[in-house]
């Protein structure tokens, strides 16, 4: 029988591998910190330029553009990791040639892929913490009202629902190698109508309706309300329910799609090709 400790040891082995690899590129590792500071500063000065313009749109979120966009870009790290890291893992394994060696081990493909994205999630958490610390201590954003339980629930549901999209995205990469439409839709459409840089309310009516079909809108709005306005779990319920519904539909669907993709890639003999 397989020892229970192996359940944790495998993800930890991937984490250990990624830490060694990432920290071995010393300059790149350091530059990632610098870029957080640069982007935060940029949005701070941008918000000073805007001043009170657009305050009516920002009122539901506390009225300050910098706080609004800070939570957006910090939280967006989780969204992009959830959706991109799984497909990136497969693509990287195909390109580097390590995927074949991984697939012939006694570890199942889902474990390989999910464990490979663990480092990205931890790194995203670290980046979010740096964003929030910079925002709170350097740029004076008030985070004192944050409802951490509500924020955690929204975060977990977001990871599950976006992780499901990430699994579908990984399935496309496994079969098509490049040209994954899920990633493309997420990167382009969610930036445009998901409320990342500006509130959804500035969009024309028909685009606003469209934006509420996307989970990113509920995720970003829920997180901003929890962190900036301290909304309770019951006040966050519309966002929580929408994300739950999305997770319930997408998670089993994504697993089915992924199983099909692996079977097809094995049939076509393209599992490890790029």
């Amino acid at each position: 029988m397989r020892p229970v400790s192996l359940i944790f040891e495998k993800p930890l082995a991937f984490l250990w591998r990624d830490i060694i690899e990432d920290t071995s590129y010393k300059l790149s590792f350091f530059m990632q910190f610098v870029s957080i500071f640069v982007s935060t500063s940029m949005f701070y000065f941008f918000s000073r330029l805007l001043g009170d313009a657009g305050i009516s749109y920002l009122k539901p979120y506390g009225g300050n553009y910098f706080s609004f966009v800070l939570i957006g870009i910090a939280f967006y790290s989780y969204l992009s990791v959830s959706i991109q890291s799984l497909s990136e893992t497969i693509r990287e394994g195909q390109m580097l040639g390590t995927l074949e060696a991984l697939l012939v081990t006694q570890t199942e493909i889902p474990t390989i892929i999910i464990s490979s994205s663990l480092y990205s999630f931890i790194w995203a958490s670290f980046k979010v913490a740096v964003y929030l610390l910079l925002g709170g201590y350097v740029f004076g954003v008030n985070l004192g009202n944050a409802n951490l339980i509500g924020a955690t629930i929204v975060l977990m549901l977001t990871i599950i629902s976006f992780g499901s999209l990430g699994i579908i995205s990984a399935s496309f990469v496994m079969v098509l190698k490049r040209g994954d439409p899920v990633n493309w839709i997420f990167s382009s459409v969610s930036g445009l109508i998901g409320g990342l840089y500006y509130p959804v309310s500035v969009l024309p009516d028909w685009l606003q309706k469209l934006s509420y079909l996307l989970p990113v809108t509920y995720a970003l709005e829920g997180m901003r309300m929890a962190v900036l306005k301290g909304y309770s779990v019951s006040e966050l319920l519309p966002n929580i329910l929408a994300l739950t519904l999305f997770s319930i539909i997408m998670l089993p669907l994504s697993i089915l799609v992924f199983k099909y993709a692996v079977r097809k890639a094995k049939r076509d003999g393209t599992l490890t090709q790029y």
């Binding site: 397989r2 020892p3 400790s5 192996l6 040891e9 495998k10 082995a13 250990w16 591998r17 060696a101 991984l102 081990t105 006694q106 570890t107 390989i112």
Partner: peptide
């Protein structure tokens, strides 16, 4: 080798 050993269920 250590990494691939873990993936093959070999304990520490």
């Amino acid at each position: 080798l250590k990494f691939f050993a873990k993936l093959n269920n070999i304990l520490n």
